[in-house]
């Protein structure tokens, strides 16, 4: 098939997706870029909004908080999701039932999930009551600058782990049994089976989960908004909360748009790094 013919076919297949992505994502995003380059009351482009947000300790704080949060939450969620997926892949009886239960939290509106966890994390709430049964003293949870971010991580993991687990289970089930049989004959133990069969075979689904989970966590917003509003002392002020606060509460659209652009660029760089990291001799 000729190069041009291939291009034509590709365009035909891609047209609906490209058109909808451009109109419904990229064009509005360009509007945000446009807005980010307009300083308050200005009509010409400048980087004033960017210099402003980078001079603002609150924004810089939220950048660091977001990066720190990502470094913890992504490996944690993926490790737990992968662990559960491996366990569930053994096809023990009733696993289907448990899998459904673990996936369910993602179906609840986040605003309701956040209310439930706010009850859980109240100093006089359920989690302290549970801990009390094991003789652990009252924890401050959302009211402590040291613990609040951990609480957010627990809540978003409760929502996310089942979701990511589902994709990993699908990936595991696509690994041909014959590969395991072959290495078992060669005397491989279960760690070796995992290391030399499961992991390499799971590379593509795992890339998907890694990238998608990272993006999802960078964009987390409702739980922060409802549980902590970014506090105490900015300890949970993730960047999306900062964007929302600027856009809809402070009414500073220029700096909200600039913060959005910074966020997108930051995530894009990280995602590209992840692709490089996960690629197999440049195959991806």
């Amino acid at each position: 098939m000729t190069r041009n013919k291939k291009l034509l076919w590709a365009l035909l297949f891609l047209a609906p997706a490209i058109i909808s992505v451009i109109i419904l994502r990229l064009w509005p995003a360009l509007m945000a870029l446009h807005e980010s380059l307009l300083a308050p009351r200005a009509s010409t482009y400048s980087f004033e909004n960017y210099t402003y947000i980078f001079s603002d300790p609150v924004f810089r704080g939220s950048l660091w908080t977001t990066l720190f949060y990502s470094v913890i939450v992504n490996p944690l969620q993926i490790a737990v999701a992968l662990g559960l997926a491996l366990l569930m892949n053994n096809k023990l009886p009733t696993t289907g039932f448990w899998r459904t239960l673990i996936l369910l939290p993602v179906a609840i509106p986040q605003s309701v999930s956040a209310v439930v966890w706010s009850v859980g994390f109240r100093p006089d709430g359920l989690i302290n009551a549970l801990l009390g049964m094991f003789g652990i003293g009252e924890q401050r949870f959302l009211t402590s600058p040291e613990q609040a971010l951990a609480c957010i991580i627990i809540m978003v993991s409760w929502v996310g782990v089942g979701y990511w687990m589902t994709f990993l289970i699908a990936g595991l089930q696509d690994i041909p049994k014959s590969l395991y049989e072959a290495v078992t004959i060669d005397g491989a133990n279960s760690w070796q089976r995992f290391r030399y069969v499961t992991l390499p075979q799971l590379r593509r689904p795992l890339t998907f989960v890694l990238v998608a989970d990272t993006v999802a966590n960078f964009l987390v917003f409702a739980p922060v908004q409802i549980l902590t509003k970014g506090g105490p002392q900015g300890s949970t002020n993730l960047i999306m909360n900062e964007v929302y606060t600027r856009a809809f509460l402070s009414g500073d659209k220029g700096s909200a748009a600039a913060a959005t652009v910074v966020l997108v660029l930051m995530v894009l760089i990280i995602v590209l790094l992840q692709f490089r990291l996960m690629s197999d001799k440049g195959a991806d």
């Binding site: 509003k229 970014g230 506090g231 105490p232 002392q233 509460l249 500073d252």
Partner: peptide, 19 residues
């Protein structure tokens, strides 16, 4: 006012939590 309220609410919340 709206920006003021937002910043003050955060400050009050911090004071409430022991800052």
């Amino acid at each position: 006012y709206v920006a003021f309220e937002e910043i003050m609410n955060r400050a009050f919340s911090d004071i409430r939590n022991g800052s």
